[in-house]
């Protein structure tokens, strides 16, 4: 399966960390928003533990941290509209995607493989 060069998209960020265990999830969100703020096309794929960033009702205030869930809710305002979730991980963690701060398409592993080769660049965080 090949994707014509003309149809390739610039950047897919592969988000695969839990939101607060490390600073990587925050860094990934910052990269995504900054990239979009400079009018670059960026799409997101949440894989594995990364889907934990999508839990509704995160409350980071008592820890004085930035709320990743609420920041992700601003993706549409940055025109980041293509967002994909790892369906297996969503089901492994029994997440209710109807309450997720982000709306996205659920993909199986084969669909994720196909998605990744449609981009010029991949960034895993």
């Amino acid at each position: 399966m090949t994707v014509a060069d003309a149809d390739k998209k610039p950047l897919l960020i592969v988000m695969r960390q839990s939101p607060y265990g490390t600073s990587l999830a925050k860094a990934a969100v910052d990269v995504a928003l900054a990239t979009a703020a400079f009018d670059q096309l960026v799409d997101l794929l949440f894989v594995g533990d990364g889907v934990l960033q999508l839990l509704a009702g995160q409350d980071s205030q008592s820890l004085g941290k930035k709320n990743i869930g609420r920041q992700l809710a601003s993706l549409p305002l940055y025109d980041i509209n293509q967002v994909y979730f790892d369906a297996e991980a969503v089901s492994r963690y029994n997440l209710d995607m109807s309450s997720s701060p982000v709306t996205a398409k659920l993909l199986n592993p084969q669909e994720m493989q196909q998605l990744m080769v449609a981009y010029d660049h991949l960034l895993g965080l």
Binding site: R16, V47, G48, D49, D86, E88, P109, M112, Q113, M116
Partner: peptide, 12 residues
Amino acid sequence: SAAFGDCLKLLQ
């Protein structure tokens, strides 16, 4: 690790 499992899942 989780990273290993995630990688494995996406290899083609």
